[in-house]
């Protein structure tokens, strides 16, 4: 894949192409994935899901998304383990990564930002919060 993020294109008529922004939701809770998917699809993203860090890394190896919503505590590989490996991958600095977790302690939030997350969302969140966070990191 080289260093370039893979992109998906949506054919529009036969002359122009509209770039579709992609979002990977990484969370071991199917319900959280479903809620988050509904929100980011509403913001115009094409969504894929992963249930842990290893699944997410495999996905990113094939298609680097524009945005990653990342849970912290997950089986197999947690969010922090995933983030460190992602940032070492070619093109792994490109996705905007938003931690989305129940951790609310300032030192934990600072730890996540220090590890290379672009922003941090405390659960529970809603569409307005996610939209404003994505807009602050320049993803929408």
């Amino acid at each position: 894949m080289g260093g370039e993020a893979a992109r998906r294109f949506l054919p529009l008529g036969d002359v122009s192409l509209v770039e579709v922004r992609t979002c990977l939701i990484v969370d071991d809770s199917r319900i959280i994935r479903k809620v988050a998917r509904r929100i980011v699809e509403g913001l115009g993203f094409e969504v894929d899901e992963a249930a842990d860090g290893v699944e997410a890394l495999t996905h990113c190896g094939g298609l680097m998304p524009d945005v990653i919503l990342l849970d912290w505590n997950m089986p197999v590989m947690d969010g922090m383990g995933f983030l460190k490996r992602l940032r070492e991958q070619p093109g792994g600095d490109r996705p905007k990564v938003l931690f989305c977790t129940i951790e609310t302690a300032p030192e934990r939030i600072a730890e996540a930002l220090g590890a290379g997350a672009d922003d941090y969302v405390m659960k529970p969140f809603d569409g307005e919060i996610l939209q404003s966070k994505l807009s602050e990191v320049g993803a929408v």
């Binding site: 609310t104 302690a105 300032p106 939030i109 600072a110 996540a112 930002l113 922003d119 941090y120 969302v121 405390m122 969140f125 809603d126 307005e128 919060i129 404003s132 966070k133 602050e136 990191v137």
Partner: peptide, 20 residues
């Protein structure tokens, strides 16, 4: 509230200016 503080503020800015 956690909802209000997150609407419009990045986590970095929140940590700089607010405490739990």
């Amino acid at each position: 509230s956690a909802f209000e503080i997150q609407r419009g503020l990045s986590a970095r800015t929140m940590l700089d200016w607010f405490e739990p």
